[in-house]
Simulated assay, not measured.
Amino acid sequence: MKKLLLLTLFWLPVLAQPLPEALKKAQEAPAVLNAKLEVETRAKDLARTLEDPLRTPLSELQARQALSLAEARLRRALAQAESEIASAYAQALEASLQVRLAEKALAVAELALKATEIRVKGGGATSLDLLEAQNRVLEAKKNLEAARRGESAARASLENLVGPWKPEPVELPPLPEEGLVERLIQEHADLLQLRQSLELLRFQRGLLDESFAARKDIEALEDQIKTLEVSLGNLERSLRVGLKARYDQLLPLLEGAKAAEKAFQAAKERYAAEEKRFKAGITSQLGLWQQELALLQAELSLAQARHAYLKAYYGLLASR
């Protein structure tokens, strides 16, 4: 009975839930939880440092830097977890559409096979036509099996991130302002770590008095500062170029999604017209199903275009 109950619970339908709700699960990702613990630890360290009457400016600076870096790494972990969820969510949606498309393709192929069999009996088709129709059915069955396997894998990947979840069509976020690139540069954890190292070296240099420190030690520290300045500048330029390129991809992807939306609406209109023709006895069941298949293909293309923008959007936000 326990096994039966578990199986029954497993097969209960999962209500469709929107992407914003799924993204909230990013707070529970292991990397995010670890980053939160690090922030809490560094915050306590800073509090203890500030309470220490014997603290030095250097120890306070290091404690503040540690907390700031932990917070930046938490923002990165959260953005990366959201990007991973958005990608898995989109993949699960597309996989479901692939199954629907494959199911309809099989139905069309089987109906076409029946029509061919009738034509062969009536002398209107050859045995080669029949063989081709049979092959199309076999191919459609293979495609459906592959689509169902893909759906199972995609659902499992999403469930691994957010638990049992039935995705629904997403609302696309608007194109972000161009200032996002500079904000990501400022918040980038690797850049922040380099900036902090440079700040620390400059602080240490300020503590050295030429009257008491050897010149070679001062020069060695100054060389380290110059080297780090060059590394920081190179990394910042490289990141800016990469982030700007990724940002510039968003508009074409968004326009592609809008174009796919228009194509989908046109396919819906064609299907509606074909449905009227079928009811009027002008076209066949096969013709109607073929038009429905074209509609499903347009729907899948729309989902793929929308998800390409969605994944690029959240992927950009995770680049910090």
Rank of each mutant, 00 (worst) to 15 (best):
E94S: 06
A115V: 15
A105G: 08
E94N: 08
G122L: 14
A86S: 14
E94L: 06
A92N: 00
T116G: 01
S96G: 11
E117N: 04
I118T: 15
A109S: 03
Q91T: 15
E132K: 04
E84Y: 01
D129K: 02
S127L: 09
L106Y: 08
Y89E: 12
V120T: 02
L97P: 02
V108R: 03
L101M: 09
A107Y: 07
E94W: 00
E103K: 14
E84R: 11
K121L: 15
I85Y: 03
G124T: 08
E103C: 10
S127G: 08
L111E: 08
A112E: 13
G123S: 01
A102W: 12
A86L: 06
L93S: 15
E84F: 06
E84V: 04
K114A: 07
A102R: 12
Y89D: 10
L113S: 05
G122R: 13
E117Q: 11
A112G: 11
K104I: 10
K104V: 12
A95V: 13
G123W: 05
Q98A: 15
A109T: 02
E132I: 11
E103R: 13
S127V: 09
L106D: 05
R119N: 10
E132Q: 03
A107K: 12
V108Y: 00
G123I: 03
L130A: 00
K104R: 11
R119A: 14
R119K: 15
T116L: 02
T116C: 00
G124K: 14
A107D: 15
S83T: 00
V99F: 10
L93I: 12
S127N: 08
A105I: 06
A109P: 04
L111H: 09
L106W: 07
Y89N: 11
L131H: 06
D129L: 03
L128K: 04
T116I: 02
L130V: 01
E110N: 04
D129T: 08
L131F: 00
A86R: 05
L111S: 05
A107F: 08
A102Q: 13
A90F: 07
I118Q: 15
V120S: 02
A90K: 08
L101A: 12
K114Q: 09
A92M: 06
A112L: 14
E132G: 07
L97H: 09
A86G: 09
E132T: 12
K121Y: 11
V99L: 14
A90H: 03
L97A: 10
E103Q: 11
L106A: 04
S83P: 06
Q98S: 11
A92K: 05
S87E: 12
G123V: 00
A90R: 05
A105E: 13
E132C: 00
L93D: 07
S96D: 14
E110T: 03
I85T: 01
Y89G: 09
V99C: 10
T126H: 02
